[in-house]
């Protein structure tokens, strides 16, 4: 039981799932995915130094609707510094795969092992693309720096994405889910902001009852 004043600025996806004791809905999945890729894009220079796990505790939803993906917490021993190829950090596609798994598990939360949730085909396809990302093409692992810096230019956002190679591709697919793609930043931020606010409201309510 915390004090009355200091509300947290962020909640982990794990905390959100536990509090509601139910999976996230599809709109929240699209939103978390978009927002997380937006923050990962903004921080591309700071690639995680070790392979990410795929735990909901690593994904944080912030009060302002931002979503971040952190490395494992301090309670987990750090994995070996380099993977089998000797790389010292995750590739963009490995991070995307982890994110896809985290989001799928959040949609699957509470279901029995022999049960499967029926997802809408576009969302299932998004997660399928994300979680197969490392198998489809590893050729662009490290070469992103000079390749797509012009992404704020929206001209190419109308093309269809048939495979995922980057955070930007994930964001394009999420934007294509909306009636108006240009609404994506505001819409998805609002969905995540609401997810945080509603969870905090529930948290406060439950704390009062206790």
């Amino acid at each position: 039981g915390g004090g009355s004043g200091g509300q947290p600025e962020a909640l982990s996806l794990e905390e959100i799932l536990r509090l509601y004791n139910q999976p996230i809905n599809e709109e929240q999945a699209w939103a978390v995915c978009y927002q997380c890729c937006a923050s990962l894009r903004a921080r591309r220079g700071e690639t995680p130094t070790a392979r990410l796990g795929a735990a909901a505790a690593q994904l944080r939803v912030w009060r302002d609707g931002a979503v971040t993906l952190e490395q494992d917490g301090p309670d987990r021993p750090p994995p070996p510094a380099a993977d089998k190829s000797g790389r010292l950090h995750c590739t963009e596609m490995e991070v995307i795969e982890s994110l896809g798994i985290i989001i799928y598990k959040a949609l699957d939360y509470g279901l029995k092992e022999n049960e499967e949730r029926e997802l809408s085909p576009p969302l299932e396809q998004l997660i399928d693309y994300m979680t197969n990302a490392t198998e489809t093409d590893g050729s662009r692992d490290e070469g992103y720096d000079a390749l797509d810096e012009g992404v704020e230019d929206d001209n190419d956002d109308k093309e269809e994405v048939e495979a995922i190679h980057s955070y930007k591709d994930v964001m394009k697919l999420c934007a294509a889910h909306l009636p108006t793609r240009s609404e994506a930043p505001n819409h998805y931020q609002a969905v995540c902001r609401a997810l945080f606010a509603e969870t905090m409201e529930l948290y406060t309510f439950l704390a009062k009852i206790k």
Partner: peptide, 23 residues
Amino acid sequence: KGKSLYNIRPKHDSGIKAKISMK
């Protein structure tokens, strides 16, 4: 505790859940 907002089906061996659980 309203009704579920999604449909559940038996897990399929070639479905996305099976694929992801193998990761």
